[in-house]
Design a protein around this nucleic acid. Structure first.
Length: 200
DNA sequence: TACTCGATCGGA
DNA sequence: CCGATCGAGTAA
């Protein structure tokens, strides 16, 4: 039932729709850890003054110009690794920042919790690289998805700083069936690992 | 090469 | 409210 989402899925338009689609999907690591995405932020095109791509194509932003389904990981404030998924077709610089997963809020905390760093920058969302996305059957109803301005982008000026491109939802508000699916998906693999570890 | 400033977080 | 901590981008 868990379905690995191929990188190509993220290569279409539009950035905002793909950002919302990311909610309820699972970030999965090679060690079996899986976390449901609950909060994201979209960065779309060079005209978006909050985006790193506002500076155009540079060594740092080159990955954003690549095809969707690629990880963009960078160091923020010299301290925090930030995980983004590049979205959209090749040559359109856009990315979605993973700001939160179930039980873990804050982009810097998400990467720390999952052991993600810049080594993954430029790799695809695919098991071959140790970090990928799965659809585990959790559908997030539209009415549960909230949109607000993005966090920490005042430098972008009033127009772009106010774009309501941060999306999040509360897993506790999911319908019972979806909540159960999310809980099962979250616990199954780690539980098996825990048992193995305890037995050995 | 020098300088500025972060898509943040935790502690005072 | 402030310091940490370092690399990208820009100007020189």
């Amino acid at each position: 039932m868990p379905e690995i989402i191929p990188p190509e899925y993220w290569q279409r338009r539009t950035t905002l729709a793909l950002a919302r689609n990311l909610l309820g999907k699972f970030l999965v690591r090679a060690n079996g850890e899986a976390r449901m995405i609950t909060e994201v932020e979209a960065y779309d095109g060079e005209s978006d003054l909050a985006s790193h791509a506002r500076a155009g194509r540079t060594r740092r932003t080159a990955v954003m110009y690549g095809p969707g389904g690629t990880w963009y990981v960078y160091l923020c404030y010299g301290v925090h690794e930030m995980l983004n998924l590049v979205v959209g077709p090749k040559d359109w610089p856009a990315a979605v920042l993973i700001r939160g997963v179930e039980g873990c809020h804050g982009p810097g905390r998400v990467t720390r919790a999952l052991g993600i760093d810049r080594q993954l920058n430029g790799t695809k969302s695919h098991p071959a690289f140790g970090l990928w996305l799965e659809d585990r059957g959790v559908k997030v109803p539209r009415r549960l998805v909230h949109a607000t301005p993005r966090i920490g982008v005042d430098y972008a000026g009033p127009v772009w700083a106010k774009k309501p491109w941060r999306f999040y939802f509360d897993p506790a508000e999911l319908p019972a069936a979806a909540r159960k699916r999310a809980a099962t998906a979250n616990s199954s693999r780690p539980a098996r690992r825990a048992k193995r570890a305890a037995g050995s």
